[in-house]
Design a protein around this nucleic acid. Structure first.
Lengths: 216, 216
DNA sequence: ACGCTAACGGACGCCCCCGTCCGTTTGGCT
DNA sequence: AGCCAAACGGACGGGGGCGTCCGTTAGCGT
């Protein structure tokens, strides 16, 4: 399931690597990405040096920690795209991704590349793929007459950013708030006979750093 | 226009106070509230001690810096409430407040009391008033059949939080994005004959620190 | 013109985080 | 059992923000 490079690690190193990843996942989930590296190390009960040995940069740690979340995200999109009813698939994408983001603050930040510009390649290439898939799904939903014609992919990005802004003290409240927000978003995106015109769509110049492979 | 306590300050102190406020406003607007106090001092070309002498805590500085923004916010609400068409007034509130927040990152954070729990009294008491006013406006808009019946005031808070999450690199893009978001929100809030049910409303336990007067 | 005091700001000590070095431990192969 | 390299983690120096102290400057009232 994990890398096949793993067998080259000594057993204790392997254990520590997992402890670090577990700690990072837990902390990132609860407190977002700007937990100090030391804090992760403390929580994993390893020394700082060990942490840095396994993950030279915070980016590397984040990327590794959210590898499976990213897969989950892809799965959501894939599954939704396979839905014969494009509008239901589209709704599902919004609901599921909002839920995912509501449950994991760190993943949201990583997903939205809160991290200083550089190397979001792992996220970006996955997003790239997902965005294309969702674009196709959206087109089908429009053709089915369920998604409003003036919808743009950037509107989805807009709503994901917006969802990120929702923050509540308790996880339960957070989930509920995000769920209700997703409900509103879906209804706002739904085609409706007498819609008035919206302000013009925006274009986020996202992932401008694409093209170059990851550089450590 | 400013305090009448001002005359008790020496002239140079008064000048410095204004320089500090100007610097703070500019920096907060552009970069949000977590600019270092030193940075404000540097930008105002005063020493750190002078800054702290005028504003003992960051809260005090923020509060003072956004006093007029807060007034502007009140005015928006008051004006909108005076509109004979409650639905138009309601729409205006959303549009104007989203715009205000899009233009000033720091004010948004202050308004949403990003600041660690404590003394948001100035904002809170104004919000308290505004929320009541908007509640009345919303009721009228519902009675007019334009605002969806299942709308809750917390939904407005939800959307303001969401709007806060929208972040773009250029101010122009930011404004456009926020404007389009407001457009979606308004349509999501609009009454519509065949709406499906939303997930349950949420209740943010906001301003739990209310009741006590501001303590320095 | 003079002096008193309000106001100034450079400099200090504190704390926290960062990334690295190096002496020590320990897994695993023979 | 014994060795060696892989892995560990305590400790260090650097940097930056914080809030305060105190010697100096300059308004302003007489």
């Amino acid at each position: 399931m994990t890398d096949d490079l793993t067998h080259t690690l000594r057993s204790d190193a392997q254990v520590n690597r997992e402890r670090i990843l577990d700690a990072a996942r837990a902390l990132f989930r609860a407190e977002g990405l700007d937990v100090p590296m030391r804090e992760v190390a403390r929580h994993a009960e390893v020394g700082p040096a060990t942490l840095y040995r396994h993950f030279a940069t915070k980016q590397a740690l984040v990327t590794a920690a959210f590898a499976d979340q990213l897969r989950a995200c892809r799965d959501i999109v894939d599954e939704a795209c396979a839905d014969p009813d494009p509008w239901r698939g589209f709704r599902t994408v919004i609901e599921k991704i909002c839920e995912l983001h509501a449950r994991d603050r760190g993943f949201t930040e990583a997903f939205m590349s809160t991290l200083p510009g550089a190397d979001i390649t792992a996220v970006a290439e996955s997003s790239e793929y997902q965005l294309k898939a969702v674009a196709a799904l959206a087109r089908r939903a429009k053709e089915a007459g369920r998604l409003r014609p003036d919808f743009t992919l950037d509107d989805l990005v807009l709503m994901l950013m917006a969802n990120k802004g929702i923050y509540a003290t308790s996880p339960a409240l957070q989930a509920n708030a995000s769920r209700r927000f997703a409900g509103f978003v879906i209804q706002a995106f739904e085609a409706c006979p007498h819609r008035t015109a919206l302000p013009p769509a925006v274009t986020f110049e996202r992932y401008e750093a694409l093209g170059g492979p990851s550089r450590h």
